[in-house]
Design a binder for these strands. Structure first.
Lengths: 201, 201, 201, 201
DNA sequence: ACCAGCGGGACATCCCGTTGCT
DNA sequence: AGCAACGGGATGTCCCGCTGGT
């Protein structure tokens, strides 16, 4: 019974720990959506999360570590979408299109998420690199298959990311409707010089 | 005689004031190029400008006011380029192309300026609006003249600005060479669906 | 068990908090006895209380709040004396006399307290109003009972308070002895035009 | 002619100096009427006087010196009234009465002056001593002539000054009307135990 | 005699990271 | 695991008094 007690207790502790950590993460997410990392304070996070400041330090070293964790969580949300695409879609252009449209749709339906993405695109190097690597892989594939006229893969990635981020900002600032998403996608594909092939969208 | 005295005094005062103010502005520019406004301190600005903190507060209310002033100065650097284009080029597409390429060239040749632009594109609402308004005017013109296939002016502006900013980032981060500028421009024009007309570039 | 824990924790917290708060209050009292509120600094209070500045701000928003708290504590010291009078003495004139003499006796025996009273009589509106209201109630009573010849209650209060404060200053500045207290009281009663009745003092 | 020029110039200089000094004094008066000396700044005085801060330091060493000068000016305003009384009135009680009523009348008709008096009564030792000395002289006279029943001159002075100051506060805070002045005077005379003699009021 | 501008420093405020407790 | 309270220090802000000019 003592065994059970201890195991149970540890289990509860872990649960509790995870729950508290999640609350901090959510609070951090909300604040990081408003302003960049250097401008948020541990006090603010603790208050938003409804915990004591000491508790924050039990879970994170400092605000930067929280920002990193939030960035990682954000990366996951991207990877979910990308994983789907990777499994189901073979054609790199279609895959890119799927992801591009998917990200914008998500931004349109979840403004908090969109704000977070925009803020993190500025700082949070790791997050940026992850997304970029994914897009670049598809584009490099497309380039080597002569599916696009653009030569420079990095330039192509910049075009895709640049339009994506700016349209995301447009969604937030001008409440641009979702009907613009397909137009934006078409524009990006034109920019890349996509050759019609088996283009299904 | 009193007239001359007063005028002279004011003149000297203005000169001195202007000189100190310029030093602060330059220091602020340099710091704002590194990190966003909320993360720079008055102490850092004062030290970089070689003045006392009290002197800073004699010229600006606080760091935000400095950031605004830097933004205004930045706007001017844009307006210079745009004023040239406005006077010499009639065709909206050519004008847009001229400005787009011009901004990227400037970024390539002056990385400090480029960094400042990228940082300010995030904050500094006024600066953004000024640039945006200029671009939108040309695009609206092009749309009404059926020179582009894109319908939504705001989306078109987002495309131009998005690619521009991201390529500027590329110049800074990957030291992208100036040879990419014309490729980027071509891509943007394709994205807008520009119809060949008397397109000379 | 959890209940006990929480209660105990809160209790200890409260104890510690109260102790530190009391130290700050005492330090503030001592400083406010020397000079008016706008002239005392948080640094001085913190040093006098033997705490860090941060701790001060954990307990008070700023010096004004401390001054208010000191005023409240001072009010209590008055109310203690007045409460005794209210319970034991029926006659308004006697009650007033008791309080008047009591305040002066206290001033004579505790110069720090007296200094604090004199300083606070200038600022600290709330403190003043509390004392004034008490005195006025007794005087209004006396007026309606035709126990005094003075008609205007506010004027009567001014007379009582004015003499009281000034004699208190005299105690501090000229080290006026306690033998003057009864003389001062007699003078005030004459000023009010008190009619002998069952006047026992 | 050169002589005349120089003399004239010096004359003008003196005039100008006096005028500027007066402007500073007036501004200081206005500010010192609002809050005690430690809380007013040279910057505020300079702005209120419409002069540069450097000019302030040409006329005064610091704020305390200004406060002293304002106090001196205030003393003069008292002495004017007292000088009249001294010349025209022989009887010490009548003289005291004249001054007491005169001060209150002035307070009622010039609230700025009254505010200044109340503020300075707290600080400004010199000002207080001057007034006190005057009153005490009359009272000592009255005591030695057996015109009052009070024995202790200092206590008597405290009574007079205490009531006077508090009634002045009443005039400011409750806009007490001038009709209370004679009542206040009567009360003070009763407090002192004045024996009817040739009492004219 | 007056002024604009400036250097220096006192002070208020905020916030970080730690401690001791349960 | 979580909390209240605290110490320490970075930073913003204000203001004093000086300087060099006319």
């Amino acid at each position: 019974m003592a065994k059970i007690d201890l195991a149970r207790r540890a289990e509860i502790g872990l649960e509790r720990r995870a729950r508290t950590r999640a609350r901090i993460l959510n609070a951090g997410e909300a604040l990081l959506a408003e302003r960049p990392a250097p401008a948020i304070t541990v006090d603010a996070v603790a208050e938003a999360a409804g915990i004591a400041k000491g508790t924050f330090y039990y879970h994170f070293q400092n605000v930067d570590e929280l920002a990193t964790a939030v960035g990682a969580k954000l990366s996951e949300s991207f990877n979910e979408l990308l994983a789907t695409a990777r499994l189901q879609i073979r054609d790199p252009i279609e895959r890119l299109s799927f992801a591009f449209a998917g990200f914008l749709k998500k931004a349109a339906s979840d403004h908090d998420w969109a704000r977070l993405v925009v803020q993190n695109s500025q700082s949070a190097a790791e997050f940026k690199l992850g997304v970029r690597a994914n897009i670049k892989a598809d584009i490099a594939d497309a380039i080597s298959n002569r599916r696009v006229s653009v030569r420079d893969a990095d330039l192509a990635v910049d075009i895709v990311i640049g339009v994506w981020l700016q349209v995301t900002r447009g969604i937030l600032e001008r409440h641009a409707g979702p009907e613009l998403i397909s137009q934006a996608l078409d524009a990006v594909l034109r920019a890349l010089g996509v050759r019609r092939h088996r283009q299904s969208r």
